[in-house]
Simulated scan of single mutants.
Amino acid sequence: MAIQGPIPISFHQVFPHGCFVVGEVEQVKDFDASSKGRTVYAKDKNTGELVWQVAVMDADPTVKAGQKTVSVKILSAVQPVVPAALPGLPFVPVEFDGMTATAYVAQNTGRLAWSIRATSMHAPRSAAASARQSASASVKETAGKDVAA
Results as ranks from 00 to 15, higher is better:
Lys73Gly: 01
Lys36Ile: 07
Ser76Asp: 05
Val94Pro: 09
Phe20Thr: 07
Pro16Cys: 07
Glu24His: 05
Ser35Met: 10
Pro93Ser: 05
Lys64Met: 09
Ala84Tyr: 01
Phe11Gln: 12
Phe20Arg: 04
Ala113Ser: 14
Thr100Cys: 09
Val81Phe: 00
Ser136Lys: 09
Ala137Ser: 13
Thr102Val: 03
Leu50Met: 12
Ala101Cys: 04
Ala106Arg: 12
Gln13Pro: 01
Pro80Ala: 02
Ala137Lys: 14
Gly5Tyr: 03
Pro61Thr: 07
Glu95Arg: 15
Arg132Asp: 09
Met57Ala: 11
Asp60Leu: 03
Ser71Glu: 08
His17Gln: 11
Thr102Gly: 07
Ser34Ile: 05
Asp60Gln: 04
Asp58Gly: 03
Val54Phe: 01
Ser115Ala: 14
Gly48Ile: 11
Asp97Tyr: 01
Asn46Met: 12
Lys73Val: 00
Asp146Met: 10
Ala118Gly: 15
Val21Leu: 07
Ala113Glu: 01
Ser115Cys: 07
Glu26Ser: 15
Val139Phe: 12
Ala77Thr: 11
Ala123Glu: 04
His122Arg: 14
Val14Ile: 15
Pro93Gln: 04
Met1Gln: 10
Glu26Ala: 11
Gln27Arg: 12
Phe20Ile: 00
Pro90Leu: 09
Val81Tyr: 00
Lys73Trp: 10
Ala42His: 07
Arg132Ser: 09
Thr69Cys: 02
Asp60Phe: 02
Lys29Leu: 14
Val28Ala: 05
Glu26His: 06
Val81Ser: 07
Val56Ile: 13
Ile9His: 08
Glu49Met: 14
Ala135Leu: 12
Glu95Tyr: 02
Trp114Tyr: 13
Met99Thr: 01
Lys68Ile: 04
Val14Gly: 02
Arg111Thr: 10
Ser34Gly: 08
Ile116Arg: 12
Thr102Asp: 04
Phe91Ala: 08
Ala55Thr: 13
Val56Asp: 13
Leu75Gly: 07
Ser115Phe: 10
Val70Arg: 10
Pro124Trp: 02
Ser126Val: 08
Glu24Ile: 00
Lys43Val: 13
Trp52Glu: 02
Thr69Glu: 06
Lys140Cys: 10
Ile74Glu: 05
Lys140Pro: 03
Ile116His: 13
Val54Ser: 03
Asp30Arg: 00
Phe15Trp: 13
Gly110Cys: 03
Met57Ser: 14
Pro87Cys: 01
Trp52His: 03
Thr142Leu: 11
Ala135Ile: 14
Ser34Val: 06
Met1Arg: 15
Asp30Ala: 07
Val22Lys: 01
Gly37Gln: 08
Thr39Leu: 15
Phe96Ile: 07
Gly23Val: 06
Phe11Lys: 02
Phe91Leu: 09
His12Phe: 13
Val54Asp: 11
Pro61Asp: 04
Pro93Ala: 04
Ser76Ala: 13
Pro6His: 06
Pro93Thr: 01
Phe15His: 05
Gln133His: 06
Val70Pro: 00
Pro124Tyr: 03
Val139Thr: 08
Val147Ser: 06
Ala106Ile: 05
Ala131Lys: 13
Lys29Asp: 03
Asp30Gln: 02
Thr39Cys: 11
Val40Asn: 05
Gln53Ala: 08
Ala123Met: 08
Arg111His: 11
Val22Glu: 05
Gln53Leu: 10
Tyr41Thr: 10
Ala148Phe: 06
Lys43Asn: 12
Gly98Phe: 03
Val92Arg: 01
Phe20Asp: 14
Leu112Tyr: 10
Ile7Tyr: 13
Thr102Tyr: 04
Ile7Pro: 00
Arg38Ile: 06
Val21His: 03
Thr142Met: 15
Ser76Gln: 09
Met1Lys: 15
